[in-house]
Amino acid sequence: MTIRELQIINKLGLHARAAAKVVHTANEFESEVFLGADGEEVNAKSILGLLTLAATQGTPLTLRVEGPDHAEAAAAIEALFRNCFGEGE
C-alpha cells in the first residue's frame, strides 16, 4: 500500500476535465486507488465520487493505493497532480 499527501496546484482546482484524467490514469492500474479530503475518501476510478471532493487550489488530498502495482499507480497519479493535469496552470 502507498499513501501520499498531494496538493492541487493548478488554479481551477480538481475540475471536471482534470478529474476525468485522474480516473483514466487510475484505471490503467490494477490496484485500488482512493483519494480523500476532510476525512471522506472516494474511489478514484470513478468520476462522480471524485467530483464530490470539489477540491480547490491548495486543498490537501490523501492518495491511498492498494494492490500489486501500487507504487507505479501512486507515482503516475502524483505526476499528474504535479503536472497540473497536463494543462499548464
Binding site: 470513478s46 462522480l48 464530490t52
Partner: peptide, 10 residues
Amino acid sequence: PHALLPNFLE
C-alpha cells in the same frame, strides 16, 4: 446521494 450528485448516474 452526496449533496452534489442527486439524480446523476454515470
